[in-house]
């Protein structure tokens, strides 16, 4: 009889999979590919509307590119600290895992604060979600990206509290890696958005 412990283990905890990639990692990759299509819908919308002739100011009239470049740089640096957190968990250095997770979350929070500041500035200069089609597509595209950053921060903070309680060890490196994949993806999407929205001239 094969009714031993190993056979009863929930399948996703088995070490061997048909492709060799773990279930969790495969799932996050597929999930990120669906996110590409989700952002793709909003990026295409923005591209379609960015040059439209309309009444009222468009986001392009009120950009502060140096300011957004700084917050973008901060977000990119958070990818670096994310990698350092992964390297730390692989070494089993839980103290540094905590430091780098907290740093990643903090950089993400800084970026979000910058975005909220930018949004309020835009609104005070007369560009809101209901001004015209370019402004709607700007606010929704960057807003949905901001929402993803916020979800990422919550995810990282959950991991941070696990680390505080010493519930992570080097065996859990994949847990950090998967969160990292999501975080890097959100960063890469921002690079695309930054180029499309701020850098390509109208």
């Amino acid at each position: 009889m094969a009714l031993d412990r190993a056979a009863l283990e929930p399948p996703h905890e088995q070490a061997h999979t048909s492709t060799g990639v773990s279930n969790t990692k495969l799932a996050i990759w597929v999930f990120l590919s669906t996110e590409c299509l989700f952002f793709g819908a909003f990026i295409s919308t923005y591209l379609l509307y960015r040059g439209t002739e309309t009444d009222g100011p468009t986001p392009a009239d009120v950009y502060d590119i140096p300011f957004t470049s700084v917050t973008s740089f901060i977000l990119l640096m958070s990818s670096l600290t994310m990698v350092l957190a992964l390297a730390a968990i692989e070494r089993g250095d839980l103290r540094r895992v905590r430091v780098w997770l907290l740093a990643t979350g903090a950089f993400g929070l800084l970026f979000l604060s910058g975005q909220i500041f930018e949004f309020t500035e835009f609104v005070s200069e007369g560009v809101s979600i209901s001004t015209n089609s370019p402004s709607s597509s700007f606010f929704v595209l960057t807003g949905i990206h901001g929402l993803h950053v916020a979800i990422g921060i919550i995810w990282l903070m959950i991991l941070f509290f696990f680390a505080l309680q010493n519930r992570l060890s080097h065996e859990h490196s994949e847990t950090i890696e998967v969160a990292g994949l999501y975080w890097h993806f959100v960063d890469i999407v921002w690079i695309v958005i930054f180029v499309v929205v701020y850098l390509i001239p109208q």
């Binding site: 309309t54 979600i129 209901s130 015209n132 089609s133 370019p134 709607s136 606010f139 929704v140």
Partner: peptide, 19 residues
Amino acid sequence: QVFLDRNFSANFFVVGNGG
């Protein structure tokens, strides 16, 4: 986009405002 247009006066599909 439809939801925002309906409830938050966004302009995704409003022709007069560039939609």
